[in-house]
Design a protein around this nucleic acid. Structure first.
Length: 492
DNA sequence: TTTTGAGTTGTTCGA
DNA sequence: GTCGAACAACTCAAA
């Protein structure tokens, strides 16, 4: 196998292993491979078999297919073929390296605990057989071990974490490799072989409408956000009925764009529009939460599975499959919650404010363990990200870092009225309520019978009656949290 | 070592 | 209608 390269009198190739960095721009592993002067073999491995690695959900499978198609086309345009292989990376990659007679492997680092362990083992294996293995940072402004408290530990509170991060300017993003890529190739799967797209039924219509996966789509999304919604972001970002958020999360998760590129673009925009400074800082702090989640996961590898605060191990969760099902299907009887859950089902996405409302409802109104919500989001979100998802759910539950205090229970009616004041968001996703006037669209059970009749709504038939009384549920939640109060802040 | 100020995103009640 | 306090205590991070 190794003789192939030798026979042709060429330098041995290097493999660039793409993972969550599906882009050409600001991709240090790819750039280093191209700069090495050796032929480059771009590789993606569908590794759904390594123990401890969370298997991708359905929405993520759809996105991955689309994003790999885009990356493959972008690489082909530069003269390189993306090689697709399936199986355990620790078996697939050494085998490919032998086939190619490769001299090296380059990748951009991942931070999930099981991925870190796998990559560490793989590096040891390949290094022992004489290959050069190099890894880089493409996914974070600051990697988890580079930010430390004064005492040398990991941060547990966002504000000081972000203050420390902002004190260190992130590296400047690099451009894509210039011109043609000198490439080598090897046999691989067809993307269609992997059957990542849904069939029978094809439920991805809403996803196709909502998203353009790939590096070009990510850049277009960022540019549109800067032009249309950065100014006013702080005031408008919470409105569920406006498209005022960046919607970059799936692109960032898959690495179709990197946070350094986002950072640089925001700073450039702000230089030209000084009035956007405060909004820009607000937006960048949201990118900061992504960084903080990765910091937490790296330093607390059990974050996706276990309460970050162990006192919550004694929390009196309720086992209620019927309630979970109503929540998942968007049939709780609370319109803002149901709209969010249906937006999620249709598009693989939910507005950030509505995520909090829906999560608070599952955890505090239904007293369902946060892991059920985490699992559902993992399966249905196109931006499903182990760090963000786990940190977010634990934050709402109160079991996480810098978490919501136990007495913060979102009132789904009040939240709906504040953040969807005309009811446009509910009308879009809960069409059976579309004809209700704004005054009662967030609490249809309080609407006068004649108003319901005029809107064609029969509660319990066309749309469910509330599955819990929020006022009762709130008191039940406060009582449940009190059972662990006082010990709830025991350190991990 | 001790002290000090602070800590994403809310709701309800009563003045 | 508006506003401030209460809702708890505890940990974190830095001085």
């Amino acid at each position: 196998m190794a003789r192939t390269a030798v026979e042709h009198g060429k330098a041995a190739p290097v493999i660039v292993w793409f993972r969550q960095d599906l882009r050409l721009g600001d991709n240090p592993a790819l750039a280093a491979a191209c700069a090495s002067g050796r032929p480059v073999v771009p590789l993606y491995v569908l590794d759904d078999d390594t123990p401890g690695v969370w298997r991708l959900g359905g929405a993520a499978h759809w996105w991955l297919h689309m994003s790999l198609a885009a990356l493959g086309a972008d690489l082909a345009h530069r003269g390189a073929l993306l090689v697709l292989r399936r199986g355990r990376a620790e078996e697939v990659i050494p085998a490919l390296a032998r086939e190619l007679g490769a001299s090296g492997l380059l990748w951009n680092r991942c931070y999930e605990p099981a991925a870190v362990a796998r990559d560490t083992r793989l590096k040891a294996t390949l290094t022992a057989s004489g290959l050069t293995v190099e890894s880089f940072n493409s996914a974070l402004l600051h990697e988890p071990w580079t930010l430390r408290t004064g005492a040398g530990g990991a941060f547990k509170v966002f504000t000081p974490f972000w203050k420390a991060a902002r004190a260190q300017p992130p590296a400047e993003p690099a451009g894509p490799p210039p011109g043609h890529i000198i490439a080598a190739t090897a046999p691989g799967d067809l993307l269609s072989d992997w059957a990542l797209l849904p069939t029978r039924p094809d439920w991805a219509g809403g996803l196709r409408e909502a998203w353009t996966p790939g590096e070009a789509g990510a850049r277009a999304r960022l540019d549109a956000f800067l032009d249309e919604n950065l100014v006013g972001y702080g005031a408008r970002r919470d409105r569920a009925d406006l498209s005022a958020t960046s919607r970059l999360s799936p692109h960032l998760h898959w690495g179709e764009i990197g946070p350094r590129q986002v950072w640089r673009a925001v700073e450039a925009f702000t230089a030209a529009h000084p009035e956007a400074r405060a909004d820009a800082d607000k937006f960048l702090s949201e990118v900061g939460w992504r960084e903080f989640s990765h910091h937490l996961l790296f330093h607390s590898p059990e974050l996706p599975e276990r309460n970050w605060r162990p006192a919550f191990d004694d929390f009196p969760w309720v086992n209620d499959p019927t309630a979970i099902n109503s929540w998942q299907r968007g049939r709780t009887g609370y319109p803002i919650v149901d709209a969010g859950m249906r937006e999620l089902w249709a598009t693989g996405f939910m507005h950030n404010r509505v995520r909090m409302i829906a999560a608070s409802f599952l955890i505090k109104d239904l007293l369902v363990h946060w892991r059920h919500g985490e699992d559902w989001f993992w399966d249905t979100l196109v931006d499903a990200d182990l760090a963000n998802n786990a940190a977010g759910w634990q934050w709402v539950a109160g079991s996480g870092a810098d978490a919501a205090p136990y007495f913060r229970v979102f009132n789904p009616v009040t939240q709906g009225e504040r953040f969807d004041p005309d009811g446009a968001y509910v009308r879009r996703w809960v069409p059976e309520l579309a004809r209700l006037p704004a005054a009662c669209i967030h609490a249809p059970w309080l609407a006068p019978p004649e108003v319901l009749a005029a809107a064609g709504v029969r509660l319990g038939l066309d749309y469910p009656a509330p599955i819990v009384d929020h006022a009762v549920a709130r008191n039940r939640a406060l009582a449940a949290y009190k059972t662990i109060a006082g010990t709830s802040n025991a350190k991990q």
